[in-house]
Computed example of a mutant assay.
Amino acid sequence: MQTTLTTESQISEHFMNSGKALTTEKAVIAAVHAELAHAKAHVSDKDVVLGLIHRLESERDVIKQDIYRQALEHVLQSASANSNS
């Protein structure tokens, strides 16, 4: 459990320190996290990934799809980097 909390905080810290480059993606990730937090007491990085995949699959707007893809890519890269540390 502690590892999950550490990983989540590392992912959150990564996006908070990413500057303006990921502003839209950060907003999407925050919205997914908030939506999941209403349904669950504990939201893991896997939950966020699944939430982004769900949005990506259900979205028809190609611009929003691209934003979801980029957000998903950043979450996966961050999770991968944190697990290799």
Rank of each mutant, 00 (worst) to 15 (best):
H54F: 07
S44H: 04
L5Y: 03
A79G: 02
M16K: 10
S78L: 01
V32F: 11
E35N: 14
V62P: 11
H38A: 15
H14V: 04
S44P: 03
K20W: 09
K46M: 11
L72W: 01
M1H: 08
V48E: 02
S80C: 13
V48M: 03
Q2R: 06
K64H: 11
D47I: 12
K40S: 10
E57N: 13
A34P: 01
T23S: 08
V32C: 07
A37H: 11
H74R: 05
A21P: 03
A41M: 06
L72T: 00
T24C: 00
L76F: 03
E35G: 04
E73H: 09
E13K: 12
T23F: 14
I67T: 08
K46C: 02
K46E: 11
K64P: 00
S12V: 10
S12N: 05
S80D: 08
H74L: 02
A37D: 14
T7Q: 14
L76A: 07
Q77F: 03
L52R: 01
T3Y: 04
H38E: 15
M1D: 01
G51L: 01
H74N: 10
S12G: 04
S9A: 07
Q65T: 13
S83F: 06
D61M: 12
I11M: 08
I11G: 00
L76K: 06
H14M: 13
A81E: 12
S83Q: 11
A41L: 13
E13A: 15
I63D: 10
Y68I: 02
V28W: 00
A31T: 12
L76I: 08
I67D: 00
H38D: 13
A30D: 14
A81I: 03
V62F: 12
R60D: 15
V48P: 01
A81D: 06
L76C: 15
L72E: 01
H42Y: 15
N82F: 05
Y68M: 05
A30I: 09
H74K: 14
V49H: 05
S58E: 09
H14Y: 15
E35P: 03
S83R: 13
H54N: 14
A27R: 13
L36V: 02
H74E: 15
A79Q: 00
H14P: 01
V62Y: 05
Q70G: 01
S44Q: 04
E8L: 08
A37Y: 05
Q2T: 02
L22D: 01
E73N: 10
E8S: 08
T24Q: 05
Q77Y: 06
